[in-house]
């Protein structure tokens, strides 16, 4: 399925995964200026939780997804309480060193427990195969993936745009000092937001296995993509992250389909061009 439409479809499915894995980082980075390079380790954790529950415990695929979310969220709360909170005022270099260290620990831990091979995952029959529509074949799993990601996006946008919790998050992203001065407990708000964002990454990681595969290098490989999404989308912007993730997903696949020799470089060219035109990101305000 190398037609333009087919490529677009795959690119959008891929972009949805990137969105789920990056939106949490965008919001928490925008709020606390905390550089969490370990964000994709939470995605990887979600992936391994799903693999373990399916292969060792015989759980159905969909039943593992909430557990992947909760496990990643819980792990992030522990790390936030134990390590990250001590580094909020430490500057970017110590934050990067701390979190990249956690990335390497997570990679080593995953390799120790699961080995370095790709994890096999057997999707249920009804998620395999493809739908034939308008002369094109659409992989069922990717359709389901897009539907789930869209539903989560709607839920996320409604939460952030139409609830008081969301208004507090936006206020804290916009001006942390003033938010505190009005009585908003930014630290607690951040911890909750951080847990939700990490949970979404875990869910993204679980959904990604069937499309991107899963091995211990996942935490580092997709960190690059997630950082590009955050940089291009603009800090703290959900709409920006969404647009950037779609752009990156489609551009990356288009590059690999049409100009394979140059394909893996194309996204970096796209990112550089975007950053030069709009240094604060697509929808960024700073």
């Amino acid at each position: 399925m190398l037609s333009v439409l087919g490529m677009l479809f795959d690119g959008i499915a891929y972009g949805m995964l990137l969105f789920l894995m990056s939106v949490g980082l965008s919001v928490t980075l925008g709020m606390m200026n905390f550089v969490n390079l370990a964000h994709c380790s939470f995605a990887m954790l979600g992936g391994y939780v799903t693999v373990t529950l399916m292969n060792d415990a015989g759980w159905p695929f969909f039943a593992t997804l909430p557990i992947a979310f909760v496990a990643a969220a819980a792990a992030s709360v522990v790390l936030e309480r134990v390590f990250f909170r001590r580094f909020y005022h430490a500057g970017e270099l110590p934050q990067c060193l701390l979190t990249i260290g956690i990335v390497f620990v997570s990679i080593a831990a995953a390799a120790y427990i699961y080995g370095t091979d790709q994890q096999p995952v057997q999707l249920p029959d009804y998620l395999q195969g493809s739908l034939h529509l308008m002369g094109l074949d659409f992989a069922v799993y990717r359709l389901v993936l897009i539907a789930i990601a869209l539903a989560i996006t709607v839920l996320l946008v409604v939460t952030v745009e139409a609830t008081r919790f969301g208004a507090k998050v936006r206020a804290a992203v916009n001006n942390q000092r003033m938010a505190r001065g009005l009585g908003i407990d930014v630290d607690t708000l951040f911890a909750v937001t951080f847990a939700l964002g990490s949970g979404l990454a875990g869910l993204g990681g679980a959904l990604a296995i069937a499309m991107l595969g899963l091995d211990p290098s996942f935490a580092l490989t997709y960190l690059i993509y997630v950082l590009i999404v955050v940089a291009v989308g603009g800090l703290g912007s959900i709409a920006g992250s969404f647009a950037a993730a779609m752009l990156l997903g489609v551009a990356d696949l288009a590059g690999k389909y049409y100009i394979p020799a140059f394909g893996s470089i194309l996204i970096y060219v796209v990112m550089l061009a975007m950053i030069m035109v709009r240094p604060t990101g697509l929808f960024g305000r700073r």
């Binding site: 208004a167 916009n174 938010a179």
Partner: peptide, 20 residues
């Protein structure tokens, strides 16, 4: 009431009033 006003730029006027 801060000297630089420090309005939340991405919140509506009503949200600025109700958020806290």
């Amino acid at each position: 009431v801060a000297q630089e006003r420090e309005i939340f730029a991405t919140l509506s006027v009503e949200e600025n009033l109700t958020v806290a």
